[in-house]
Design a protein around this nucleic acid. Structure first.
Length: 190
DNA sequence: CATATGATTCCA
DNA sequence: GGAATCATATGA
């Protein structure tokens, strides 16, 4: 009853991405509070899969809003997306991290695996009994940054399309490059 | 048909 | 810093 409805998803991915932070996704009884998302805005967005037009792979992406778009990346990780705006728009929001009871859900691949999402869920409705979303229960302080892993998309790589809960410790990557933790050098072989 | 590559993660 | 690993997109 309090579930998010089609109207929630039928908006620009940019709006939905921001609105999704802090909401809870429910799948097969597992609940996860979404803390990090990224918006992908259709064919004009060179970082979005929709840039290649309607293909076998992107078919779910061009489907009606409020449905699942799942794809395999790097040959080993599933990425779960929520379709937005309107059928044919090619808009979607990637769920990058969430707080899951007793499990790690930080990182697109980890989130999808923890929530048991696979490509078999493509085009499934996100407004059903076993798969739906619930509105936020508390106010959330949302931070913004550029998207991750899309450096190849030129000017689109710098667009502030990544949203995350500033108070959560479960975001997949640090806001700035506060990554002071210098990467260890490969140790000399013994 | 052959080839290049990516909305990542893990290990050293 | 670099490998792992494969479906999809793209070009011949």
């Amino acid at each position: 009853m309090t579930r998010l409805t089609r109207d929630f998803f039928a908006r620009d991915a940019l709006v939905v991405a921001k609105a999704l932070v802090g909401t809870t996704i429910v799948h097969q009884g597992k609940r996860a509070r979404i803390v990090e998302t990224e918006a992908y805005r259709g064919p004009k967005d060179l970082a979005c899969h929709a840039r290649a037009g309607l293909t076998k792979r992107t078919k779910p992406l061009f489907g009606p809003p409020g449905h699942a778009y799942v794809f395999l990346i790097y040959g080993m990780h599933e990425c779960f997306n929520v379709t937005c705006k309107a059928e044919g728009a090619g808009h979607a929001v990637l769920i990058r991290a969430a707080e899951i009871e007793g499990e790690r859900g930080d990182g697109p691949g980890r989130f999808a695996r923890a929530m048991r999402f696979t490509r078999a869920h493509n085009s499934e409705s996100l407004m059903t009994e076993h798969l739906h979303l619930l509105p936020r229960e508390r106010r959330v302080r949302i931070a913004v940054s550029a998207r991750v892993g899309v450096a190849y998309s030129g000017e689109w790589a710098d667009m502030p399309y990544r949203f995350y809960d500033a108070a959560s410790a479960h975001v997949s990557k640090p806001p700035k490059s506060a990554i002071g933790s210098a990467t260890a050098k490969p140790r000399p072989r013994s």
